[in-house]
């Protein structure tokens, strides 16, 4: 789980140095454009290849971690599975479970693959953003883009408390594992009901403990001068390179839209 969350990769790459706002807008632009593009994928794949090639160093460092992370959206992708049946087109298979009449169409399959690919690409793009931007800087960029402070604070804290939650869960699981001893020749673990009860108690514990910890972390932030706004030291004045990158990204997005709609 931690590998899933520890995303910032501390190297100096061209993308690391880009202005935050450019990165953020490019990512959002890509994801929105991606969702809006027609289902013909050629253009998008080209764009993806370009992005993937952009920074070999990041991919090298991120390595397997990035690959694993990129499946974080898998459940959402699978939610799109119904289009396989719902899209009108030439019928290629029929399936009648429980009296349902499900017809798989060729257009449906293509569309489903397209959704999978596009979702995966969007996640890739988001990973690229988070791998090259540290989180306080990201929230700071949101502030510069005139997102309300309250909203940004909520995002910042959700992020921090995600770690809190994961850490507490790890602690609890470790405590349970270290005391789940089994004598030789005995069946360990107790009955199903008992186990369910333990799991339920642990869930409650996790909530209470995470809240208490979140409280204390908040105290620690206040103790060090936090007054509702996260500050960052990452440079943020638009420079020539930033404008160029913005323009390039805009062109790329436009191209994808054009190719995607043919």
């Amino acid at each position: 789980m931690e590998a899933l969350l520890d995303r910032f990769i501390s190297v100096d790459s061209p993308i690391h140095c880009l202005d935050l706002r450019v990165k953020l807008l490019a990512t959002v632009g890509f994801i929105v454009g991606n969702a809006a593009a027609g289902w013909r994928m050629a253009g998008l794949c080209a764009a993806a290849a370009a992005i993937d090639a952009v920074d070999q160093r990041i991919r090298a460092v991120a390595g397997f971690g990035a690959l694993k992370r990129s499946f974080i959206a898998l459940p959402f992708m699978l939610a799109g599975f119904s289009v396989v049946f719902a899209t009108p087109g030439r019928e290629i298979a029929q399936w009648t479970p429980l009296g349902l009449d499900l017809r798989v169409t060729d257009a449906g399959v293509v569309r489903f693959i397209s959704i999978m690919l596009r979702t995966w690409l969007s996640v890739q793009m988001a990973i690229l953003l988070t791998a090259t931007t540290d989180f306080p800087a990201l929230t700071h960029a949101l502030r510069h883009l005139k997102v309300p402070a309250v909203l940004v604070s909520i995002i910042a804290f959700m992020y921090r408390y995600l770690f809190v939650l994961v850490e507490e869960a790890q602690r609890l699981l470790r405590a349970r594992a270290s005391r789940s001893a089994v004598l030789p020749g005995q069946k360990g673990g107790g009955g199903l009901l008992w186990r369910a009860k333990v799991a339920g108690n642990m869930g409650g514990q996790l909530l209470v403990r995470s809240m208490a910890r979140a409280d204390r972390v908040y105290m620690a932030m206040q103790a060090r001068g936090y007054r509702g706004e996260l500050l960052t030291m990452t440079r943020h004045t638009m420079q020539r390179r930033d404008w160029q990158a913005a323009a390039l990204m805009l062109l790329l997005l436009a191209a994808v839209q054009l190719v995607g709609r043919v």
Binding site: F8, S10, D134, F135, P136, R160, E167, R213, R216, V217, M219, A220, M221
Partner: peptide, 8 residues
């Protein structure tokens, strides 16, 4: 663990 809350 209460004191430290940043990425680095």
């Amino acid at each position: 663990d209460d004191q430290l809350f940043s990425p680095t």
